[in-house]
């Protein structure tokens, strides 16, 4: 079979195309993350912006340099590296050293994304893999959570709400309203449920994300953490589990990420991610399990895609006679 290549494809049908490109999708995602970034700067100070700029720049540069060295088609202008960079910064606390986010960025782009074939071919979410690398090699670098500036005093070290909840400590100092607007210790981009949902609503409006995938993930986590609570069955704190960790960030911006989740089986993968996340939160050593939950789902996407067969028109029909 001889296929036309590049410029020979100029005249093939269809002759109209939808007014949306990869770049526009990525720009939409960046736009949707801006409210949460502004929130991060407001709650945790200018360091949030510096870390974000550092990771975005590192991601762009490492993608550019790698593709130049390999003489590949340059894809830096598609904005996907910006999304990865922002997500890396969103997933670390504001006290993280700059070198740590830069290492995570290089690893995410070069190893996780480009080693496996670049945009669309990576097996897992690069930003989450970057975070996982830091968790594995330098856990201390990303575990110094601080209170927000706006909690009455200067920022001081503090456990996250989920951490306190897991340890059985009192979480009463953080109101549900604080959790909703983001006035609690946590990673730069994860604390404000309100601002994340504004961005997510925009993505839904632009039809960039799959609402079902995000919804299923959240519901699965809430259901399991509610049922198997440490105080006994059906005694979990739904609102704390929903609003105090990375659940909303994960559901809105990472569970819905294209490259790592096979489209047709998104909902099934969301359930898997939800089970793993909830399992870590309840029985694991760590208070939080969003990133590992999503990474496990990413790795299983190929398998699930093979198990659940799509229905092909006219194939395998039963009782089709009138």
């Amino acid at each position: 079979m001889k296929l036309k290549v590049a410029e020979q494809l100029h005249d093939v049908s269809p002759h109209i195309t939808m007014n949306r490109s990869t770049k526009e999708i990525m720009q939409d995602v960046v736009l949707a993350m801006l409210p949460a970034l502004l929130g991060g700067i407001y709650f945790f100070g200018i360091n949030s912006l510096i870390l974000t700029l550092a990771s975005v720049t590192t991601c762009l540069l490492s993608e550019y340099i790698w593709q130049k060295i390999r003489r590949e088609q340059l894809t830096v202008s598609d904005w996907s590296a910006v999304v990865t960079g922002m997500l890396i910064a969103f997933n670390v606390p504001s006290t993280t050293p700059i070198w740590a986010v830069m290492v995570a960025s290089v690893f995410a782009i070069v190893v996780v994304k480009q080693f496996f074939g670049g945009i669309g071919s990576n097996f897992a979410n690069p930003a989450l893999m970057g975070r996982a690398l830091l968790m594995f090699l330098w856990p201390a670098s990303i575990s110094n959570y601080v209170t927000t500036y706006h909690n009455g005093a200067d920022a001081i070290s503090s456990a996250t709400v989920l951490g306190l909840y897991k340890a059985g400590s009192d979480t009463a100092q953080f109101t549900k309203w604080d959790m909703f607007i983001g006035n609690i210790p946590g990673c730069i981009g994860e604390t404000s449920v309100l601002l994340l949902l504004i961005g997510f609503a925009y993505l839904c409006y632009r039809r960039v994300v799959n609402l079902a995938a995000a919804g299923t993930y959240v519901l699965t986590v809430l259901l399991i953490t509610f049922v198997f609570a440490k105080d006994g069955m059906f005694k979990g704190d739904i609102l704390t589990n929903l609003m105090s960790g990375g659940l909303i960030l994960g559901a809105c911006f990472m569970m819905t990420d294209y490259a790592s989740v096979a489209p047709r089986v998104k909902v099934v993968l969301s359930i898997i991610a939800g089970v793993v996340t909830a399992g870590i939160r309840i029985w694991g050593r760590l208070p939080e399990g969003v990133s590992y939950g999503i990474l496990v789902a990413n790795c299983l996407s190929g398998l699930i895609d093979t198990i659940i067969r799509p229905h092909i028109y006219g194939v395998g029909l039963k009782n089709n006679k009138r």
Binding site: L9, I25, T75, I312
Partner: peptide, 29 residues
């Protein structure tokens, strides 16, 4: 007989968004 303004498309790598699968009337990937 349809006349359209000519345009150029440049192919870029698939991002596995799954839109093609969602709209395929034959249910293919």
């Amino acid at each position: 007989l349809l006349v359209l303004e000519d345009f150029t498309k440049v192919e870029s790598p698939c991002i596995r968004c799954g839109e093609c699968e969602r709209v395929c009337p034959a249910g293919l990937a």
